[in-house]
Design a protein around this nucleic acid. Structure first.
Lengths: 184, 184
DNA sequence: GTCTATACAAAGATAGAC
DNA sequence: GTCTATCTTTGTATAGAC
């Protein structure tokens, strides 16, 4: 199929963004991982590295958003608890050298990263909006809901960093243990 | 003075790690910012980029640790509150394209980053240990203290990411608002 | 639409003069 | 201890055949 290669390139880019960051993601590695040829990447992504990175961040953002939309929203506590349970496997990947592809494109803003920052910003916003709506449905006020949602995403991002460093899920588990009581 | 140049190189490296990440930090920029000559960098840091990055992460880690050691420890709430107040200006730098130099060296672990990961790990540990001790003195149990300390550092790191992306302190302020009640 | 080959720039690293 | 000059590798990007 024609789009198979393009898809694998994005897939590879996501993985490389997580492990090496934006500046560390090279076309050489993307092509090696996706099995494509050198020139093909510019056929699918005329905008070069920036466009590929944006597509990768976008795909990652959509996957997470879709994931968040499935969380239960009966009470604030069950929502927060279900959130942490569901992201735990994702953070586990960070403990093995991974990370968040969306967060990755926010670093190395030298030059072209203007549109990448915007992509990441709208990704985080969409996640927080999704959770915020659910917290509202669970009974929190508009402002409390947004604060709670922001805290969840903040802890998630921080846990990515600490768990990648510690190569363990311990930081995540400890942060969650300290944080969960907030939600009743 | 002989060590003046070396010092400025580390200083520049810290700033570049924060803004561009490990892979994005180039000697060209370090030298341009520190005013040194091309070869001099290998005189002071024979281990090359890895050694310079380690020195930079180390310096940043020590500054933060020294900072944390000055926080009050009468109650858990005043400690957490003072912590967030004191790191707010640091996160503000992230909102303008900055970040955490220690977190930066945890990305791009391709090849040499083994010792860099270890450096970052001991940095985060030292921060958590420091806060944990203060939470203990404030009356928390050993385990509660460590959980609380881990949460603070996790929120800090997550806020770096979200605030750099949003180019605002709003994510930090919201996360703190949702998080602070946990501490009584 | 996919490939090979190559141009061009930037990076890390080293050698040797001063 | 600091400088200039240079080697090697890697990376982005383009041209053109199939």
């Amino acid at each position: 199929m024609a789009t198979g290669v393009r898809d694998r390139m994005i897939e590879s880019a996501v993985e490389l963004l997580q492990r090496r960051g934006l500046a560390g993601m090279s076309f050489t590695e993307v092509l090696a991982a996706s099995g494509g040829a050198r020139g093909a990447i510019y056929h699918h992504f005329p905008g070069g590295k920036e466009q590929l990175a944006r597509a990768a961040a976008d795909r990652n953002a959509r996957m997470v958003l879709d994931h968040l939309s499935r969380l239960p929203e009966d009470t604030a506590h069950t929502l927060a608890s279900a959130f942490f349970d569901s992201v735990r496997p994702v953070v586990a990947a960070s403990a093995q050298g991974g990370g968040c592809a969306v967060a990755a494109v926010t670093v190395d803003s030298g030059g072209s990263a203007g549109t990448l920052l915007a992509t990441a910003a709208s990704a985080f916003d969409s996640w927080i909006d999704q959770l915020s709506g659910k917290f509202s449905n669970a009974g929190l006020s508009r402002d409390e809901a947004r604060n709670a949602a922001t805290l969840l995403i903040t802890v998630l991002q921080g846990a990515h960093v600490l768990c990648r460093t510690a190569q363990t899920l311990e930081p995540f588990d400890r942060a969650v243990a300290a944080c969960l009581p907030t939600f009743g």
